[in-house]
Design a protein around this nucleic acid. Structure first.
Length: 746
DNA sequence: TGGATTCGCGTTTTT
DNA sequence: CGCGAATCCA
């Protein structure tokens, strides 16, 4: 059986010699050693949860309780899977971990599904669509259903379908009340068609990987399959449990019902992927579904100083929907969290730059500093400033390698070679590079394909036998299928697929297209294509490579050198830095207005968890800042300090201010200030704001050479930098009211 | 068909 | 403002 990997019996010997449990605290030890039955480990930030998981895994093997192949270790991201592999391997003295059931939900589900694909109408070489393909498919289907893409953006409808899949709902599982009247009530037929089309194309989207395998495992007709997996997996380990969606939960539950030995590790306070289907409720359900479940909390933090932890605790304690943990540390008091209000985004970037340089002089390494922003556009100002200062920085995020246009194009060629029924891939590259095959031609091909119920590729083969197409078009298409047929036979020969890819890119003219291109990105794209080809060499088959690139491939970020890191708060999860800068704490930006508008209290609480994640990234120093003026989408927007600023516990904060900027008064600026109930008013951002400023906004600007700071917001007391106090009442009708303005010397 | 121009809109991000 | 998509026009 391919999934069983023997372990080296000398491991036990090694275990005798060096205890892998050294240095674990009692709670961690208990979590590691409670190997029988369901266990939920609630582990706060920086409490060593990954260590618990890896130690546990290693211990199971060390102690001979399970072979690697009998352990299902599931993580949420590839990064986490990678880290786990490395650490387990280290603990086991360098044992290889290839072939273990250790990986992400999607990768493991895909692996299972390959064995049983025919049971859901697929063949085992199905390809995996990315979200871009999904949207294009939805868009195509919308046409046949007469759904207006202007009224209903394809992206939105694709999102709706994905969210059903996140909940493990197939079209036939959806009740009338669950469908809603989106797209004039045509969502269900659209979803049904979408699924049928996917089967015809022999593809899965990400949601399908889990959906299909759940369908199979649940089916009483295939009870033997589930029984088989139950026999295989003696232990199940799950990381980042708070990020699981319903489908992932169901999958886990189905598999865990065999041995009942399931250990989940997570932190409800760090659930920041709710917008993508994660359900914190899965943590609560755990106790219900596994009635003898044991719960262990890890609350001792080994990362941050007490002031930082207390600041984080203070903020997160404002969330009502949480299980409740209070982190503590023995590291020491440390420094208070620095809080600073500034004039605008430029000033904020300059200030951060100054602090960074000062810290460098004190011996802090750039590698141990990070600027963590809520949204990507905030990065620009920091980049500009860092460039001016000559500070080396590294931006994490942005488009991933395999999301780049040229990589996806190259991939599309290979997908057609691997599976010529992949219409979406073929459509992508049929006229890339330009071959003179425009919309009109593609429509003809599609019409033919649809009427015959065949694939695009097939319909090219058909139509090139007739005279329905213009001679020029016909010969171009014949050349194209000739090429593909040749590449397909090469793929089956023993030509290495790396070489095959290189050949395809050359012969198709794709490489030339970029060589001719004068744009500044072109050289980089060629570089990426080279990398793409060399990445292929590491895989045994084209099939394996395609799966890897769809599910696994990471951005390679060079860790060498001393760089300050610039990334979003989401990207920072699981990382830690000596120094964390948290700029942009303005209401509407953070917490994000949209999150609050769309998801109300739930959205706000998720934003608050994001704040918690942000603060707890810092080991020694945290800097929080907000500005009065920020440039967004080309125009100036004025903001108030985030409500999270108000929530920072005073005792752990070192408040700094700058001219013309107020700092909130802790006593009078609280929850009944009128702000907290009004996230649904369009108080911030967007076009509405400019024409009708509402309560909750302030205005600031330059008037005749002097800085004038107008207050136009309601609620509470505001202290200005100069010590003036300004009492402001808010208008219950939500009307904007200029309460006062004053002049600050420039 | 495809280059040029206007339009419209704008989190976070994993697989 | 800046980018991608839709639309226009040769």
């Amino acid at each position: 059986m391919d999934f069983i990997v023997d372990y080296d019996p000398r491991e036990e010997e090694r275990a005798q010699q060096a205890s892998i449990f050294d240095g674990l605290n009692p709670a961690q030890l208990e979590a590691v050693q409670t190997t029988e039955g369901p266990l939920l480990v609630l582990a706060g930030a920086g409490t060593g949860k990954t260590r618990v998981l890896t130690t546990r895994l290693a211990a199971l093997i060390h102690q001979g309780k399970a072979f690697p192949g009998q352990i299902l270790a599931v993580t949420f991201t590839n990064k986490a899977a990678q880290e786990m592999k490395v650490r387990v391997s280290e603990t086991l003295g360098g044992a290889p971990v290839e072939g273990w059931w250790l990986g992400t939900f999607h990768a493991l589900a895909a692996r299972m599904l390959r064995h049983h694909a025919e049971l859901v109408g697929l063949s085992s070489n199905f390809t995996i669509l990315d979200s871009d393909d999904q949207v294009r498919l939805v868009k195509q289907l919308m046409e046949t259903h007469n759904i207006d893409p202007k009224k209903y953006p394809p992206k939105m409808l694709a999102g709706e379908i994905s969210s059903w899949k996140d909940k493990a709902k197939r079209p036939e599982d959806l009740g009338a009340d669950e469908v809603g009247d989106l797209a004039n009530g045509k969502m269900l037929p659209l979803y049904r068609d979408y699924q049928n089309r996917m089967k015809a194309l022999n593809t899965c989207d990400f949601g399908d990987l889990l959906l299909h395998i759940i369908t199979i495992l649940k089916d009483p007709k295939h009870a033997d399959i589930l029984v088989d997996y139950h026999r295989r997996f003696k232990y199940i380990l799950v990381d980042e449990y708070q990020d699981t969606n319903v489908a992932q939960y169901l999958w886990l539950r189905l598999l865990a019902k065999g041995s009942n030995n399931i250990c989940c590790v997570g932190d409800d306070d760090q659930s920041i992927y709710g917008w993508r289907g994660a359900e914190v409720d899965n943590i609560l359900r755990f106790e219900k579904d596994f009635d003898d479940a044991k719960i262990i909390k890890l609350e001792e933090n080994y990362r941050s100083t007490m002031h930082i932890l207390s600041a984080a605790n203070g903020v997160i304690s404002k969330n009502n929907n949480r299980l409740g943990k209070e982190l503590y540390t023995n590291i020491g008091e440390g420094e208070k969290v620095n809080l600073r209000g500034l004039w605008d985004g430029g000033a904020e970037a300059r200030w951060v730059g100054e602090e960074v340089e000062a810290l460098q002089n004190k011996g802090f390494k750039l590698n141990q500093m990070a600027v963590l922003v809520r949204t990507g556009f905030q990065m620009r100002e920091f980049e500009e400033r860092f460039i001016q200062l000559g500070l080396p920085y590294r931006v994490i995020g942005g488009p991933r390698f395999y999301e780049r246009m040229e990589v996806r194009d190259a991939l599309a060629y290979l997908r057609v070679v691997a599976q010529s029924n992949d219409d979406l891939a073929l459509e992508r590259i049929i006229n890339t590079p330009k071959r003179g095959l425009g919309n009109a031609t593609i429509q003809i091909l599609y019409t033919h394909a649809r009427s015959k119920g065949i694939s695009l590729y097939q319909s090219i083969l058909d139509l090139t036998q007739t005279d329905e197409l213009r001679p020029k078009v016909k010969s171009t298409l014949m050349k194209l299928v000739d090429d593909f047929e040749r590449w397909k036979s090469l793929a089956e020969s023993d030509l290495h697929h790396g070489e095959l890819a290189a050949q395809i890119l050359d012969e198709s003219g794709y490489n030339d297209m970029w060589k001719m291109d004068k744009s500044p990105e072109a050289p980089g794209r060629l570089e990426n294509l080279k990398e793409f080809v060399s990445a292929m060499d590491e895989f045994e088959s084209l099939q394996q490579f395609l799966e890897h690139i769809a599910l696994v491939l990471e951005n390679q970020s060079n860790k060498d050198g001393d760089f300050i890191t610039l990334m979003t708060l989401h990207g920072a999860k699981g990382l830690e830095f000596d120094v964390a800068f948290l700029p942009g704490w303005e209401d509407g930006l953070f917490p994000s207005q949209r999150s609050m508008d769309e998801n109300g209290v739930k959205g706000l609480e998720e934003e608050r968890r994001l704040a918690y994640v942000g603060i707890t990234r810092a080991r020694q120093k945290a800097y929080i800042s907000y500005v009065a003026n920020r440039r967004m989408y080309g125009s100036w927007v004025n903001g108030l300090p985030s409500r999270f600023v108000d929530e920072l516990p005073e005792d752990h904060i070192n408040v700094q201010t700058e001219m013309g900027i107020y700092s909130p008064d802790q006593n009078n600026h609280g929850s009944n200030s009128g702000r907290s109930n009004h996230w649904d008013s369009s108080g911030f951002g967007g076009k509405t704001r400019q024409s009708t400023p509402k309560r909750g906004t302030s205005m600031a600007g330059f008037v005749s050479g002097e800085r004038v700071f107008h207050e136009k917001f309601g609620g509470g007391t505001v202290t200005h930098a100069e010590g003036q106090k300004l009492d402001i009442e808010f208008d219950n009708a939500g009307q904007k009211r200029v309460m006062d303005s004053f002049v600050v010397k420039a």
